[in-house]
C-alpha cells in the first residue's frame, strides 16, 4: 500500500493484510468484536447452564421475561453510555431523570391531554434535566459524578414535595401500549432496540458521534482540532437526557404506580451493563451493540435465578459481583494499554 518508509516498528501494532478495506466501522473493531464474543460467550454459558438444570428454560415465557426486563434497562443504559463515551464519567442522577420524565408524562395524561403531547413532554423533561446537569458540570467546571450525585439527591427531594406516587390512567393509549406485544415480544422492547441501533449508527457514522468519541477519548486533542468542548459536553448531557426521557415514557407505560424513589433499582444494573460492555469509564470508547449483549446477559440473571430456584437475593449478589468484575477488567485494560 505504501512505500513503507516507516516500517511497523511496534510488534503489538495490529496489522491488516494488504491494507484491504475493512468493514466501515473498523475503528477498534477487533476490540469490540472480542468484547462482543466474550459477553455473548458468558451469556450463552448462562443459558446453557440454566437449560441443563431446567430444560424448560428455553421457552417463550423466558423470552418474554428477559426481553421485558431488558427494555427500560436498555434505554437507560444507552443514556448512560452517551455520558460515559463522551467523557462525562457517569450520570448518577439517571434514576431521577427517569422518574421525573415519567412523572411529567403521566401528569400530562392525567390532565386529559393526548398521548402525542405526553410523549414529547416526557422526552423534553429528560432533556431539561440533562441540560441542568450539563450546565452545572460545564460552566461550574465540576466533577460530573459529584454534580449528578448532588442533583440526584436534590431532584429526589424536590420530587417528594410534588408527589408521593403517580399513576398513569388505566385506559390511556400509552398504558395499553405498555401492556401490548409486537412480533411476540413486549411493545416496549422495540423502542429499546431502535434506540440502540440508531445510537450505535450515530456514534459510528455521524459527525456528532465522531466528535463525542473524540471529546471523550482525548479532550485536549479535540479542542486543538477546533471542537467546542463545552458545546459537546452540554450536547451529550442533553442528548442522554432525551434518551432517559424516552425511558421515562416507557417506564410510565408499564408501571401503573410509581414513587419518586422508584428509579433507584436501575442504577446498579445500568452501570454494570455499561461497564461490562467495555464502555470504558475513561471515555472515548464503546460499542452499543456490545451493550445490547451486555444488557441481555444482565436481564437473564434474575430469570435464571428463578429457574435455579435460588434465594431471590442472589440475583443482586451476582449483578453486584459482575459490576466489580467489569470495573476490574476495565482497569486492567487501561493499565495494559498505558504500556
Amino acid at each position: 500500500m505504501t512505500t513503507s518508509l516507516i516500517t511497523p516498528a511496534d510488534p503489538a501494532a495490529p496489522r491488516s493484510p494488504g491494507g484491504k478495506t475493512r468493514r466501515p466501522d473498523s475503528r477498534g473493531l477487533p476490540v469490540s468484536a472480542r468484547d462482543a464474543l466474550s459477553i455473548a460467550g458468558v451469556w450463552v454459558a448462562l443459558i446453557v447452564a440454566t437449560t441443563i438444570v431446567r430444560p424448560d428454560f428455553l421457552s417463550t415465557q423466558s423470552l418474554l421475561a428477559i426481553t421485558f426486563t431488558m427494555s427500560i434497562t436498555g434505554i437507560l443504559a444507552v443514556s448512560q453510555a452517551i455520558i460515559v463515551i463522551s467523557g462525562g464519567l457517569l450520570d448518577l442522577s439517571l434514576p431521577v431523570s427517569l422518574i421525573v420524565s415519567a412523572w411529567a408524562t403521566v401528569t400530562v395524561l392525567n390532565n386529559g391531554l393526548p398521548t402525542w403531547v405526553a410523549i414529547p413532554v416526557g422526552i423534553l423533561t429528560g432533556m431539561a434535566w440533562g441540560a441542568l446537569n450539563g450546565i452545572i458540570v460545564v460552566f461550574g467546571k465540576l466533577n460530573p459524578i459529584i454534580v449528578t450525585l448532588a442533583t440526584g439527591f436534590g431532584g429526589l427531594a424536590v420530587m417528594l414535595i410534588f408527589f408521593k406516587s403517580a399513576q398513569i390512567p388505566a385506559q390511556s393509549d400509552l398504558r395499553l401500549y405498555g401492556l401490548g406485544r409486537f412480533l411476540g415480544l413486549p411493545n416496549i422492547f422495540w423502542p429499546m432496540v431502535m434506540v440502540i441501533v440508531l445510537g450505535g449508527l450515530a456514534f459510528a457514522y455521524t459527525r456528532w458521534g465522531r466528535r463525542l468519541i473524540a471529546v471523550g477519548g482525548n479532550a485536549s486533542a479535540a479542542k486543538a482540532r477546533g471542537i467546542n468542548l463545552r458545546r459537546m459536553r452540554l450536547g451529550s448531557f442533553i442528548g442522554a437526557g432525551a434518551v432517559a426521557g424516552l425511558a421515562g415514557v416507557m417506564f410510565s407505560a408499564v408501571t401503573p404506580s410509581f414513587t419518586p424513589a422508584a428509579g433507584a433499582s436501575f442504577q446498579l444494573i445500568v452501570i454494570g451493563a455499561v461497564i461490562l460492555a467495555g464502555i470504558s469509564l475513561s471515555g472515548g470508547k464503546g460499542n452499543l451493540l456490545v451493550l445490547l449483549l451486555s444488557i441481555g446477559f444482565f436481564a437473564t440473571i434474575p430469570t435464571s435465578i428463578a429457574f435455579f430456584g435460588l434465594a431471590p437475593a442472589w440475583a443482586l449478589v451476582f449483578q453486584g459481583a459482575l459490576l466489580i468484575i467489569a470495573v476490574g477488567i476495565d482497569g486492567y485494560r487501561l493499565k495494559r494499554t498505558a504500556r
Partner: peptide, 16 residues
C-alpha cells in the same frame, strides 16, 4: 417492597 424491583424480578418467577 417496591413495584419497580418487583416488576423487574417477577417475570422470571412466572417463566420458571
Amino acid at each position: 417492597g417496591n413495584l419497580t424491583t418487583s416488576l423487574a424480578n417477577a417475570p422470571g418467577v412466572f417463566a420458571a
